[in-house]
Simulated assay, not measured.
Amino acid sequence: MDIQQYKQMLEQPWGKIQYEITFAQLAHLENKKILDFGSGFGLVSQFLAQNNEVVAIEPQEEMLFAYSNHRYEKILGSLEQVKIFESESFDIVLCHNVLEYIDENCRVNYLSELKRVLKRDGKLSIIKHNQVGKIMQAVVFSNDVDQALDLLNGNEFKSVSFSQGTTYTIDELLEMSKMKLENYQAIRTFYSLQMNEVKTKDNWLEKMTEMELAVCDLYPYKDISFLQHVWLVKE
C-alpha cells in the first residue's frame, strides 16, 4: 500500500470531490455516536466530529495519526477492536471502501460484528465499489479494455494505493449482513469518466460536485456510478 501516493491523490481536485459528495450525504447526522471502521486519514471522522461523538478504528498507524489536529477518538487496529465494544453501542457505523479488500469468506464475520455494535434501528453506512461503474471507467477514462473484461468476468481489481480487491453487489451485501436496505446513493457518476486535465479548471470542483449531488439519488445514475453509498438498517 502506497500511503503517500494515496494522500497526494486526495489533495487533487479529483480526490477532494469524492469527499465533498460523501460529506453532503452524511451532513444530516447530528448528536449521534458514530463508529468509523477503516477510517483511513480520518477525513470523514473529522467532518462528523463537528456535530457527533466519533470513534475511528484504522489498522494503518501512519494513516490514523496523519493529522494531529483531528479531534475524535482514534483506535489502532481492526475487527478485534470492534469486539471490545458492548452490543448496541453506536447509532451509526461507517464502513467505507473496506469490504472490497477483505477476504470474501470473512466479510460475513465483519458485517456481523459491525451490526452487533449498532443500536436497534441504527444504520450502517457502506461505500462500495460498483462493478458497472468500474467497467465504464476502465473503458472510457483509462482506455483499458483488458481491465474492463477482467472486471466483467468478476476478477480482482488492482487499486492504485491499496491491495487487490473484489466487488460485490447490493443483493450480496443484504444477504451477508441480514439487514434492511434503506437507500443507496451514487458517488462518482460522471467525474470518473472525464480526463484529469479538465479537473483543474476554475470552478470545476464546485460545478461537478453540484452535478454529482443532483443525480446521486436518481435512477439510472446510482446504478452506473463508480461507487455506491448503501444505507442499511438494523431491525
Rank of each mutant, 00 (worst) to 15 (best):
E61G: 07
Q46H: 12
K83G: 12
H96K: 14
Q18F: 10
Y101M: 00
D91A: 12
P13R: 08
I57R: 01
F37Y: 12
L76G: 04
L64D: 00
D103V: 10
D103G: 06
Y67R: 11
I57Y: 00
R71W: 06
A56D: 02
R107F: 05
Q46K: 13
I34M: 06
Y19D: 04
V82H: 01
E62I: 12
I75E: 03
N97M: 07
V98A: 00
F37Q: 01
S39G: 13
K16R: 15
L35K: 00
L26M: 12
R71E: 14
N52T: 05
V93H: 01
N52Y: 04
E11G: 08
I84T: 11
Q12W: 06
F65C: 06
L48G: 02
D103L: 14
F85Q: 07
G40T: 03
N31E: 12
Y72A: 01
Q46N: 15
I34Q: 01
F47D: 05
V93G: 01
P13A: 09
V98N: 00
F65V: 04
K33G: 05
V98Y: 00
N109G: 11
N97D: 08
L64Q: 02
I17T: 03
C106V: 07
K74F: 05
P59G: 05
E73A: 11
Q50Y: 10
I92G: 03
R71Q: 15
Q25A: 04
A56Y: 03
K32Y: 12
N52C: 06
I21W: 01
D91W: 05
Q81G: 08
Q46T: 07
A24C: 10
D91K: 09
M63L: 15
T22R: 03
Y19P: 01
A49E: 02
E20N: 15
Y19Q: 04
I21A: 04
S39C: 15
A24F: 08
I17P: 00
S68A: 13
E80H: 08
Q81V: 10
R71D: 14
I84D: 15
I84C: 11
E80N: 13
C95S: 00
H96I: 08
I21S: 00
S78N: 12
G15D: 05
G15E: 02
I34T: 02
G40E: 04
G38D: 05
V54C: 03
F47M: 09
K83T: 11
D91F: 04
R71P: 08
H70T: 07
K16A: 07
I84N: 14
E62T: 15
G77Y: 05
F47G: 04
Q25K: 10
A27F: 11
S89G: 12
E11P: 06
N51L: 06
F37L: 09
Q81K: 15
D91I: 10
D36W: 00
D91P: 07
K74I: 07
K16Q: 14
L26F: 07
E20H: 14
C106W: 11
E73G: 07
L29N: 05
N105H: 09
S87P: 09
A66M: 11
E80Y: 06
Y101E: 01
N52D: 06
E100G: 00
F90G: 02
E53G: 05
H70A: 09
A56M: 02
R71G: 07
